[in-house]
């Protein structure tokens, strides 16, 4: 939030999270290398750099699936929020593992020859119709470029300078990168296999990611009320139907989402989009008088929309009134958010 600059706002949860991620990566790679070597018939084990490259690649793909699953899981159940909280660090860790896979592959497959290692890998002349004539390495390289852009812009510095909208669009490229990774595997290692095991595992992973996103999206559509068409104040329903300190999200005629929070016998309305990463404030809670974003804990005074001092961020707020136990919201904002100055 907008106070004195610190590179990373460390806290206990982030430290534990990062430590566990680091240990899990070391464990993963060690187990994969161990299984590869120990289950190989004598003398038939892959070369050590290949074993390492495969282990890093598989580890990266598993991490990518976890990263992509966390978002919809957290939408389906707030109990997954602790995994979402530090997802950017998990993303950067994933990128580092993918980068090591990339370096070992370039160095070992593309190195020691008469051509530039990267060119050697990307300039293979393919005629196989299954690969559209494109080397499978190209798909991995294209995905890696996207992952690099995402990792390089993952810091809040870029979020603030690019703006939440552009930043979010940039980071939505992860789905294109994921599709490229699937093609990298499908036209690469999968082509050399006689068994369907790897194809089945990759398909199961892709189907799981798709299913989680579809279910989470469907649940969100069902949970949100219909758009309120018409001029004037918006009816947000009966106040007592909203759990205390929690919110109901309404959508106005001009498609704005407003989170209406209940605090005892009163109500407050703020925009449903957090100024930080566009998190769903309506899925948050009023804590110590502040609307608290469920994604990263950004806080805004429920009445004024201003962050508590020393922070200076603020979100749009709306007038509310209660008539016959029902909450009515004026869709015209009474204050502007931080990014509208």
């Amino acid at each position: 939030m907008s106070t004195s600059y610190r590179l990373v706002q460390w806290n206990t949860h982030k430290k534990v999270y990062d430590l566990l991620v680091g240990l899990a990566i070391v464990l993963f790679v060690s187990v994969l290398v161990g299984v590869s070597i120990m289950t190989s018939p004598p003398g038939e084990s892959a070369s050590p750099p290949i074993v390492l490259m495969r282990a890093l690649g598989v580890c990266a793909i598993v991490l990518l699936h976890i990263i992509l699953a966390i978002g919809p899981l957290a939408r389906l159940s707030p109990r997954f929020a602790p995994l979402l909280y530090n997802r950017r660090h998990l993303g950067v860790a994933f990128f580092l593992v993918a980068a090591m896979h990339f370096v070992v592959a370039i160095g070992f497959y593309g190195g020691f020859g008469v051509t530039n290692p990267l060119l050697a890998l990307l300039s293979g002349r393919y005629r196989n119709a299954d690969t559209f004539g494109i080397p499978f390495e190209f798909y991995g390289f294209a995905a890696f470029v996207i992952f690099f852009l995402m990792a390089a812009t993952s810091h809040d510095f870029w979020l603030h300078n690019l703006g939440p909208r552009a930043w979010k669009w940039l980071h939505m490229l992860v789905y294109i990168a994921y599709a490229l990774v699937v093609m990298h595997v499908a036209f690469g290692v999968m082509q050399g296999q006689t068994s369907l095991t790897i194809a089945l595992i990759v398909t199961a992973g892709a189907l799981t990611i798709c299913a989680l996103h579809l279910v989470a999206g469907f649940r969100q559509v069902v949970r949100e009320p219909k758009a309120f068409v018409g001029e004037g104040w918006v009816d947000a329903g009966v106040l007592s139907d909203i759990p205390d300190t929690r919110a109901r999200v309404v959508r106005t005629h001009n498609n704005q989402e407003i989170a209406v929070f209940r605090r005892g016998d009163t109500a407050h309305a703020v925009t449903n989009r957090c100024i930080h990463q566009g998190g769903p404030l309506g899925e948050g809670q009023v804590i110590d008088g502040c609307v608290t974003c469920p994604w990263h804990g950004y806080q805004f005074d429920a009445g004024t929309g201003c962050s508590p001092p020393p922070f200076t961020d603020r979100v749009r707020t709306y007038d509310v009134r209660i008539e016959n136990g029902r909450v009515l919201v004026n869709p015209e904002p009474k204050s502007k958010g931080s990014h509208e100055h």
């Binding site: 993963f28 590869s36 018939p41 038939e44 084990s45 892959a46 598989v58 598993v62 296999q193 595992i201």
Partner: peptide, 20 residues
């Protein structure tokens, strides 16, 4: 972690033969 390790272990086992 367990699901990832099992899936990865199966992949590693599948790729175990690399010639003599």
């Amino acid at each position: 972690l367990l699901a990832g390790l099992v899936a990865s272990g199966i992949v590693a086992y599948t790729l175990r033969r690399s010639g003599t």
